[in-house]
């Protein structure tokens, strides 16, 4: 029990939290952009799996990590385009098209894995990169500043997405399209084009989330390796109230409790393991229930835009 209160443990928990948060950050931030423009993409999980596979495959065959990242972004953007085609152009019900995307990504990534690689193997992925100076701060240094490159990129995306949404004309248009597409259209904002862009970017970011597992955190690819992260990532967008910083805080809370429950099991304080695994899910719900109410839901979320049928 006392093992839980040592500095090593504290560093360990924080380090885990940051690492665990990474795939969620990529996926949730992408989803935030997409939802702010009014499109719910429930297919994040499938896009993550395809990204994980694409990145892994390129790293296995070429050894180039950069190539892996590019492959993930490319494949993710492609699936994002497909999602936009279905959800924006064909105005499909977004809950259902997301499930279709999930199944397609799950199946296709597994099938391609089986046909190309055939067996589980590992790669040399992104190595941990200790930031000089910062990483030697006691306790916090090794916890926060000794991670692989993709972890830093994920966190750097938070202010970037916040800036994009809140401080740029692009962001203004995205929010306008998400809140009132008819009005935005009247003002000459290209509703369809903007939704295409956000869903495509969202897909690319989800795929990066997958790649952050397969070529950074775990360094293997296995069928269905994300195991539900994509769905939690969508849920955490709601937690964060569609604001990048809020989303990040939600992710950090979820990751912190996830890391903590592993340590609780590890030091053996006697809670049944199944109940420990439940903790992050329960606490996330409770935290949101207790948080002050805030609205921020894009008014036109899940509503397709149809100029003729205003």
């Amino acid at each position: 029990m006392e093992q839980l209160f040592t500095l090593t443990t504290l560093t360990g928990i924080l380090h885990s939290t940051i690492r665990l948060a990474t795939p969620y950050l990529f996926a949730s931030l992408g989803e935030t952009i997409s939802q702010r423009s009014g499109v719910l993409n429930l297919g994040v999980e499938g896009q993550m799996l395809m990204g994980a596979f694409a990145a892994f495959f390129v790293v296995v065959t070429t050894g180039s990590l950069l190539g892996g990242v590019v492959a993930a972004i490319f494949v993710g953007a492609l699936l994002g385009l497909l999602m936009a085609l279905v959800s924006v152009s064909f105005r499909a019900e977004q809950g259902i098209s997301g499930i279709g995307m999930y199944l397609l990504g799950l199946g296709l990534s597994s099938l391609l894995f089986r046909l190309t690689l055939g067996s589980v193997q590992s790669v040399r992925g992104f190595a941990e990169l200790a930031l000089p100076g910062l990483s030697s701060i006691p306790v916090l240094g090794p916890a926060l500043f000794k991670h692989s490159l993709l972890v830093y990129v994920a966190f750097a995306l938070v202010p970037m997405v916040a800036y994009l949404l809140n401080r740029t004309t692009w962001g203004l248009n995205i929010r306008a399209v998400g809140d009132n597409p008819q009005a935005a259209d009247t003002l000459g904002v290209p509703v369809i084009a903007i939704r295409y862009a956000t869903v495509t970017v969202g897909g690319a970011m989800a795929a990066m989330g997958g790649a952050s597992l397969s070529i950074s955190a775990v360094n293997i690819f296995q069928e269905n390796m994300t195991g539900g992260i994509g769905f939690i990532a969508v849920a955490l967008v709601y937690f964060g109230g569609w604001r990048p910083v809020g989303v990040m805080l939600g992710i950090l809370l979820f990751s912190l409790v996830s890391a903590l429950q592993i340590w609780l099991q590890l030091v053996g304080i006697g809670i049944p393991s199944d109940l420990a695994v439940m903790l992050p899910y329960i606490l996330t719900i409770i935290a949101l229930a207790l948080a002050p109410r805030r609205t921020g839901q894009p008014a036109a979320l899940t509503r397709p835009f149809n100029r003729g049928m205003a």
Binding site: T11, A217, Q222, G268
Partner: peptide, 24 residues
């Protein structure tokens, strides 16, 4: 030290558990 992921197939959770063990 024993930990359980609560799933037979959750690769990512198993990875995190292993990291935690090594950190411990």
């Amino acid at each position: 030290n024993k930990t359980y992921t609560g799933s037979f197939g959750d690769t990512a959770a198993a990875a995190e558990a292993a990291s935690t063990h090594i950190a411990a």
